[in-house]
Design a protein around this nucleic acid. Structure first.
Lengths: 117, 117
DNA sequence: CCGATCGTCAACCGATCGGTTGAATATGGG
DNA sequence: CCCATATTCAACCGATCGGTTGACGATCGG
């Protein structure tokens, strides 16, 4: 019914969920630990994680009381491939990547309206 | 307050908007012509286009009565770069790309059929 | 000038989103 | 066994989304 890209891009459209993915890039995490840095309820994070699971971007495995969250970077492949079709730009540019990351960190807390020339 | 990636990914999350981008990949188009293949009102397409403009994915230029829409593939660069950070996967995999495209064509059902050779 | 075309605006609609709170369900430790 | 911990569920809320319809301003052609 709905295209897989719908849920993948929709999941990526929220900054909280992108930050969760960034955290999981470093290591697998329990739900409570994922929630810890955020200023919102555990239930809200639990919902975000459900959305990420539905999009296939993460998987969860329950061991005992603890549910572990694991990044599934392959799910981004479809989205990356789709975007490649619009990319005259070269596939990987690590310089641009680092420049972007430093900009990313600054932008987190500042107002940054859409550039409309 | 909102990150540029928010609006880019949100814009990409809708299949109508992705299809519009795909159409604009071939050539610049007037708003009416963009709307033509879709089974929805012109006003709805006009809204989709403003969302794409806000995300920076397209630009519009009015010449006479006609407003021309132009793809801005550079806007996808930020999103592509962000996704690269999750990619242990190799930058471009053309086999996977073709496989994905054939699947993509099958899934599109909400618009008028595309002549498949 | 007149009528048709191009495109947006405004109001409205139901559905979904992102968040809250409070209760409920496992599970583990002492 | 009891209690704390880990996580989800359910109901609710305001805001936003994706769509409609009808009216409207601009612009072109004859």
């Amino acid at each position: 019914m709905t295209h897989p890209l719908d849920s993948i891009f929709a999941a990526l459209a929220d900054p909280t969920r992108r930050e969760i993915l960034r955290m999981l890039l470093e290591d697998d995490m329990a739900v409570t630990d994922v929630a810890h840095p955020f200023a919102m309820s555990l239930a809200a994070i639990s919902k975000h994680l459900t959305i990420l699971v539905s999009a296939g971007l993460i998987t969860q495995e329950k061991r005992g009381r603890v549910k572990w969250c694991k990044l599934e970077p392959d799910a981004l492949r479809a989205a990356a491939i789709w975007m490649q079709s619009f990319g005259q730009f070269e596939p990987v540019n690590l310089d641009a990547f680092e420049a972007f990351l430093s900009h990313e960190l600054q932008v987190q807390t500042q107002i940054d309206p859409i550039p409309t020339p």
